[in-house]
Design a protein around this nucleic acid. Structure first.
Lengths: 150, 150
DNA sequence: GCTGAAAACAAATTATG
DNA sequence: CATAATTTGTTTTCAGC
C-alpha cells in the first residue's frame, strides 16, 4: 500500500466507473500498471466490492432512526441470539455494540413514522433479549458518506 | 419504478459489476431493455453513482466512535457554521441532526484511540459552537450495510 | 418499452523490454 | 513498470416491432 494505491482507492471509493485509462492518465502511469494494482487491491481484500449508491429520498426510504438497545441479560448466548436476529432485519442498516449506558446502537431506515412504528411493534420488540430501547429520530442529514478518510 | 426496476436496484446496490447481460438473464429480459432501465434510473437520480467498498480493517481505519454534540447556542447562523465545519472534517463519515437531548450525532472513523484523541483536541473541539460532547466507542460492528431495504 | 444485431469501447491477457 | 498487440466481453447505438 503505497501512495499510488491510496490514490487509486480514494478515486474508486468516489467513482468506481472510472476507467483504468482515466486513472492511469491522472496518476501518470500506464493502464496496465493501474489495472494490476486494482486487481491486487481486490485480491488483498482491500476492495470488498463495487456497489451502486441509491438516493433514499427518491425511493422513499428517508426516515432514519437511531435506536439504542439495552439487553435484559448479558449471557453469551443471549448476545449471540440478539445479534443474529438483528442481522436478519433489513430495516436495520447498521448495528454496533457500544460502550456506555446502552449496549447497542441500531441505525434504522424506513419509509416514515408509521413504518417505524410497525417495525418496532412487529419486528424489533419481538426479540425477547431486549430489555429497553430509546429511539432518536433524524431531523436532518448533515453529512453521509461511505468514503473512508484514507 | 416498477418491480423490475426495484430488482435491478437491489442487485446493483449489492454488486454494481453485474453485467447487463447477467441481469437480463436473471430478469428474463433482453440486455438492451435492462440497459435502458439502468440509464433511466441514473438520469432520474435514483442511482447516485457507483463506488468501491473498502475494508476499514485492511486500511487500519477501524476505530469507530459515535460522538453526540450539544451546541452552546441555537441561533441559525451558529447551526449553519457548525454544520459547514463538520462537513469538512474527513474523519466524520456521517452527521445527523437529531431530536432528543443532544443536537447532533457524529459518526467518526479513525485509526485508533490516539488518532481519536488527536481529532477531538485539534479538530472537533476547536469548533466554537460546540457546548458539550459525549463519545461512545464501538466495541464490535454487528452489522453494517449501505443497502437500502427496497 | 421491448428485441436482436451491429458498432464502439474497455477489460483482460500475453509478449517484450 | 512501460509499451504494444490481441482476445474477449461489455456497453452503447440503431432499426424495427
Amino acid at each position: 500500500m503505497d501512495e499510488t494505491d491510496k490514490k487509486i482507492l480514494q478515486q474508486l471509493q468516489r467513482n468506481s466507473k472510472l476507467t483504468t485509462k482515466a486513472l492511469a492518465a491522472d496518476l501518470g502511469l500506464s493502464a496496465t500498471a493501474v489495472y494490476e494494482r486494482i486487481r491486487r487491491l481486490e485480491r488483498n481484500g482491500m476492495i470488498l466490492g463495487y456497489v451502486a449508491r441509491i438516493d433514499p429520498v427518491k425511493v422513499h426510504l428517508d426516515f432514519r432512526v437511531f435506536c439504542q438497545v439495552k439487553l435484559s441479560q448479558h449471557v453469551q448466548h443471549q448476545i449471540r441470539t440478539f445479534e443474529k436476529e438483528v442481522d436478519q432485519l433489513k430495516e436495520v442498516v447498521s448495528c454496533y455494540h457500544l460502550g456506555g449506558e446502552y449496549d447497542y446502537l441500531l441505525e434504522i431506515c424506513v419509509r416514515d413514522m408509521a413504518a417505524y412504528r410497525e417495525f418496532m411493534v412487529s419486528k424489533l420488540t419481538l426479540i425477547p433479549q431486549i430489555g429497553s430501547t430509546h429511539s432518536a429520530f433524524v431531523i436532518n442529514t448533515v453529512k453521509q458518506t461511505h468514503e473512508l478518510p484514507l
